[in-house]
């Protein structure tokens, strides 16, 4: 099955096309503030360079985040509407899983990290490689690096866009030889590969319900909830 993968959770419009397990195209268009302006043109150029039309695509893979909230909304909306217009299935993929998948040949515990933007917060999850691909073995984590280090009890392979930044801190927190790093960005082809496997086994998402994986509530809601909790704490 030909699957188009889109991930806009990072610094690029990442777009890839796979045919089952074979990667046909994998591009990351650096966008800065032009993700929305470029996205359709980027998709059109990736399809065009492979002599493909939208009608050739059998399904869609969409990176759901976590990552830039605004960025994810672009990819999710475009992916959802492409599936809706073509009547083809769509599968949302966690961007952390897509990152971890890049380290699928590693024997160590895989730790995928995405920068959460504010106050050195990160999104993370732990994965293990098995005969059927990779499997998530922890809950999603939102917090700081020391908190993450406490969850890790064994040598890890760290996967992130800015892995070197985390490597030095985590290396100090854990024993230094316990951490190795793989630096890679969310990729369109990886998202497409993961989606293709699931779509081929009939695991598609409800197209119109497809929604981002934010992992954090909006600041306003967090603020109100904090006050609610405080109010409840006061006898």
């Amino acid at each position: 099955m030909l699957v188009l993968g889109i991930d806009t959770s990072g610094y690029a419009n990442a777009i890839g096309v796979v045919d089952g397990e074979r990667v046909l195209a994998d591009f990351a268009f650096q966008t800065r503030n032009e993700s929305l302006a470029r996205i359709m043109l980027n998709i059109d150029s990736v399809l065009g360079e492979n002599n493909l039309g939208l009608e050739d695509i059998g399904g869609f893979g969409v990176g759901l985040g976590p990552g830039s909230w605004t960025g994810i909304r672009i990819g999710v909306t475009v992916g959802k509407m492409l599936a809706y217009c073509t009547g083809k299935p769509v599968k949302g993929i966690s961007t952390l899983e897509a990152l971890a998948f890049c380290a699928r040949d590693c024997q160590r515990l895989i730790c995928a990290i995405v920068d959460a933007g504010a106050r050195e917060t990160i999104y993370a999850a732990l994965y293990r490689s098995g005969h059927n691909g990779i499997h998530q073995v922890s809950d999603y984590y939102v917090g700081d690096l020391p908190g993450l280090a406490e969850l890790v009890k064994e040598p890890i392979t760290l996967v992130a866009t800015d892995a070197q930044k985390y490597l030095s801190v985590l290396g100090q927190l854990l024993k230094s030889d316990a951490v190795e790093a793989l630096e890679t960005a969310p990729g369109g082809a990886v998202v497409a590969l993961l989606a293709a496997t699931r779509l081929e086994s009939g695991e598609n998402d409800d197209t119109l319900a497809l929604a981002p994986l934010y992992l954090k509530e909006s600041t306003a809601r967090a603020f109100i909830n904090k006050y609610k909790r405080r109010a409840q704490a006061v006898p």
Partner: peptide, 24 residues
């Protein structure tokens, strides 16, 4: 309503959830 005005991030999230259904 409970915020006494429109919260931009909450609005954007809701639009993303609803847009497909509303068009359909």
């Amino acid at each position: 309503r409970k915020y006494g005005g429109v919260v931009p991030e909450i609005a954007a999230r809701r639009h993303t959830e609803l847009i497909g259904y509303v068009i359909n």
